[in-house]
């Protein structure tokens, strides 16, 4: 069935030229060529075997291409993971710590700006007899802003401390695990490819032998 589907796909794509096969011959599973019956047609059986061989060669070619692609992909993934790990250790880790510290500084500065704004608002309104209500509205608004910013700073400080204590080691661990995972996937890929290649080689060898056998039988019957 698998072979029939592949054949259909390859034929549909116009990629395969198959020898003419008598219409009386039905498709068979590769490697399972029926032994010639006393009233069988050896020439037809030989043609059938040659067709199976052609398909098997194409599958082999396809497998090689697929394996090459997988190999490149996993190798690149491993190279990237290794580079990430190296970069992380060399500078990303330090930069992340500095970035987190900068964000904390922003939060501190925002609180300082809000306090400065309140101070200046106080200066502006103190120097004038503006309507008390307006001054109070604006001052209350600025005070609420400071309270919000104070809470935001507390949260930012907590987040910074937690990230250094928990987030940073977890981030390092994730990167390290990713490298190990990529290495394991690469090993598995090599094993899978070796196995698949071996199976295909055996299949091709069996088909070769079968063809030789059929040719020999055909030759003998002609004699």
């Amino acid at each position: 069935m698998r072979t029939a589907l592949l054949t259909f796909l390859l034929l549909g794509a116009g990629l395969v030229f198959l020898p003419n096969i008598p219409s009386s011959v039905r498709a068979q599973e590769p490697g399972k060529t029926e032994t010639a019956e006393p009233d069988s047609d050896p020439a037809a059986e030989l043609a059938l075997a040659k067709r199976d061989l052609a398909i098997a060669k194409l599958r082999m070619e396809h497998l090689l291409s697929e394996q090459e692609l997988q190999r490149l992909q996993t190798q690149m993934e491993h190279v990237n993971a290794a580079a990430n790990l190296k970069e992380y250790n060399v500078y990303v880790k330090d930069a992340a710590v500095e970035q987190a510290a900068l964000e904390l500084l922003y939060s501190k500065d925002e609180l300082a700006d809000a306090e400065e704004e309140l101070r200046q608002l106080g200066m502006m309104y103190d120097a004038n007899n503006l309507a008390d209500a307006t001054a109070q509205i604006v001052m209350d608004r600025a005070n609420r802003g400071i309270e919000r910013q104070r809470k935001a700073l507390e949260l930012a400080a907590k987040e910074h401390a937690n990230w250094v204590k928990y987030g940073l080691p977890r981030e390092f661990s994730e990167i390290k695990n990713a490298e190990a995972l990529a290495a394991a996937e690469m090993n598995l890929m090599f094993l899978s490819q070796t196995l698949a290649l071996k199976e295909m080689e055996v299949e091709l060898s069996d088909l070769d032998k079968e063809i030789k056998k059929l040719e020999s039988e055909l030759s003998e019957s002609n004699d």
Partner: peptide, 8 residues
């Protein structure tokens, strides 16, 4: 206008 005066 009274309400608006002094608004920053």
């Amino acid at each position: 206008l009274d309400i608006a005066r002094g608004r920053p």
